[in-house]
Write a protein that binds this DNA or RNA. Structure first.
Lengths: 134, 134
DNA sequence: GTGGTTGCAAAGGCTTTGCAGGCAC
DNA sequence: GTGCCTGCAAAGCCTTTGCAACCAC
């Protein structure tokens, strides 16, 4: 007997979506994941991709990175860390900043609240786009 | 002769929207701003509120705080700082964290990119909602 | 056979935009 | 009078959801 979750089933779609995210080195959006899975399952639907990604996030296998004014990206790295997004080309990179230190600081400033997580996004120009502008 | 901006006009709507945001102690969404302005200009439209808020943000008079999965909030404080949002009731508070220190850290990790700004949001339960859960 | 899953399409929420009329200058 | 601004409504984008068919168990 599992804790309480109704018995989950393994399907072609689920494993294809999971491996698409886990094997990606970038940070794909739901639409990108859908396109990649389409190579294996041509008639996969975007609704299913969103549903399965939601499950994976809930299970803690994948992390969702909300991007202001743009579709969320999905990240195989669960370890908390910050991100950098290029305002020109939209490329999203990891930044190995001590997010936990930020949270500790925030807790010190706000002892009466219960702070669980942080979303830290830096914005600017990536090396490539920076070069093109100068 | 202004720098280059086509001559902007002063209208009842613009000043009402601007003062609604600047006089608010909370962090209203565009819809909330619209409702408050309606007391003064009953037939103000949400489209206009979004348009004017966009101008104010561009002029640097107001700051937009994008909230993942919820409407953006608008903040009269331009000084960069972090925010805390309660996942239960949606209340948004300022946190006087040294955002510039975060940016400096990120720049050190990512010297090849040009990092301009940061969006830092902490999530958890506010004092009030925390009390109700225990 | 049961009921979690899927594909499709429609709907949902937030935000932007096209257009004709209106108003600040 | 000019052309920026407004109100209205429609459209846009990302995401969620209802439903009947489907398939893992």
């Amino acid at each position: 007997m599992q804790t309480e979750a109704a018995a989950k089933r393994n399907t072609r779609q689920k494993s294809a979506i999971e491996s698409a995210v886990l094997s990606s080195c970038d940070h794909p959006s739901a639409l990108t994941v859908c396109e990649r899975v389409k190579e294996e399952i041509p008639n996969i639907s975007l609704g299913t991709v969103y549903r399965v990604l939601g499950m994976l996030v809930k299970e803690g296998k994948v992390r969702e990175i909300p991007v202001p004014g743009a579709p969320s990206r999905f990240d195989k790295t669960t370890r908390t860390h910050a991100h950098f997004i290029c305002t020109e080309c939209g490329e999203l990179s990891d930044i190995d900043a001590e997010e936990s230190a930020f949270i500790a600081h925030a807790r010190a400033m706000f002892p009466e609240a219960e702070i669980d997580e942080a979303e830290i996004i830096f914005k600017g120009l990536c090396a490539h786009c920076k070069g093109e502008k100068s």
